[in-house]
Nucleic acid binder design. Sequence first.
RNA 1: UGGGGCGUCGCCAAGCGGUAAGGCAUCGGAUUUUGAUUCCGACAUUCCCAGGUUCGAUCCCUGGCGCCCCAGCCA
Length: 556
Amino acid sequence: MSSDSTPISSNFLRSIIEDDLSNGKHGTIVTRFPPEPNGYLHIGHAKSICLNFGLAQQFGGRCHLRFDDTNPVKEELEFIESIKESVRWLGFEWGEHLYYASDNFEQLYQWAEYLIQQGKAYVEELSADDIRIYRGTLVEAGKESPFRDRPVDESLQLFRRMRAGEFPDGAKVLRARIDMSSPNMNLRDPVLYRIIHAPHPHVGDSWRIYPMYDFAHGQSDAIEGITHSICTLEFEDHKPLYDWFLENLPVPSHPRQYEFARLNLTYAVMSKRKLHELVTQGTVSGWDDPRMPTLMGLRRRGYTPAAVRTFCERIGVGRSDSWIDMSVLEECVREDLNESAPRVLAVLRPLKVVIDNYPVDQVEEFEAANHPQRPEMGSRVVSFSRELFIEQDDFSEAPPKGFFRMSPGNEVRLRYAYIVRCTGVIKDESGSIIEVRCQYDPASRGGSAADGRKIKGTIHWVSARHALEAEVRLFDRLFTDPNPDRGGVDYKQFLNSDSVEVLPAAKLEAGLSSTDCETRFQFERQGYFRLDPQDSSPGRLVFNRIVTLKDAWSKK
RNA sequence: UGGGGCGUCGCCAAGCGGUAAGGCAUCGGAUUUUGAUUCCGACAUUCCCAGGUUCGAUCCCUGGCGCCCCAGCCA
């Protein structure tokens, strides 16, 4: 992780930890990343992962991976596995510190009985609807349940029978006995346990009752000896409850909770519900669709873990609601790939070019640098012949002002090869250009004019008879609006109908025949690409565009 | 209209009473066989507003205004 390029900057969490360490409150820090295994991880989770694992790393502590698996009806083994895979892919390792809240179920159950015995919890028999009505509203105090003051023994017996599976789902719950008139809704006798007759992905069918998040999370933190329990802002209202449990239970430690603002990205949606919808409604091909902001999606697209880590560092950590510009993420991959990606010539939308004065059967080989700024990356040889492909965009019959690519009468350099002058075009019956004719300057071998004249434009090309054919997929933002997630409107109305463009017959330089999906390339003048790990096979090359190059010209 | 937060450049974000870091974006200009990269330069007399305390306030106090979160047997 030392290769990440953004300097570590100050934030409020680092300050807190520095203080706790220097004043001896803690000798070492322990954090945790606590996902619920009910879906795939997205870029927002990456922020939390980088924060928790990163803080532990920077301060010589450790970070646990803990599954907050208290709701068996939403959780699946598949999600547990994909989460582990995503965290590892991001570059973090939890070692032996893998935990499940569900492994604490017996202890939590004992603590629940303890609370009952202390008169601090009771078995509730009101229906879910009635509980809601009794809870009151934001501006009105709640009412106490008729079961609130029932004898301790009665609650205890009932709770044991709940555990034994004697009651159907929803028949009863266990509630904490706190304060029905608290202005903090979380303190109005929160539900601790509910009856769910469903098997659990991790602990199987051993339980009929399951603790709620609030009754499991803080205690799990305490059991694991977490020092800094870092979560998102919406849990701030839960902190008094978090602390209430830790103060009223014989727990081994009392972690402190700190909250930060969750990540929002422009031109994306981040809620699990909406991502799920995109998948199930077939808007995208799956959780790993290269346009998805999921870690699986970014990975398949070709993003590097280092780029995602740099992004998480660069956006900072604060407590104010923030919308990070997609361009920040994009710039992070470019930075990473600009350093490491070998350059290659590839024509995405081919236009045939014939060099009339070039010998018909002649083939020349030119040396091309794999990375002009990094000679140590070596060079390769590219074949040149009379018939080539160039990019359709690199030719204009009636060029706009400032266009310095190929146009009739103008000279342009074919990268690494020769300077050519366009002499004419051939069109089909409908008037579209199907071929461009040129004359080359034999004295410009390698691309430099013998007389030293300056050539402004350099374009890429591929020799027609040597070209490799490939499918290339150009991905763009999934949404047309910077904030599709804003309230009041259906985010689906902002779906970008052009978020993927498939180019079926791109022409690549021959050397690309033997590459693998681990290598990211820069297709010169176009962007960064890599083989799609899913759809590519030895006989069929499918490239994904990870991100474009910056393009000052197209902006004009 | 209860409670909890937040408000520093277009987007993030440092700053912790001593006179506004940095990144992304944007705009100039230089170098360039990628209109990329790299490099230089510009970019908040001002920190939501109004009062107050102070020699001095983005930082302290008071009062406004705006935005976000909370009424799951979800996490």
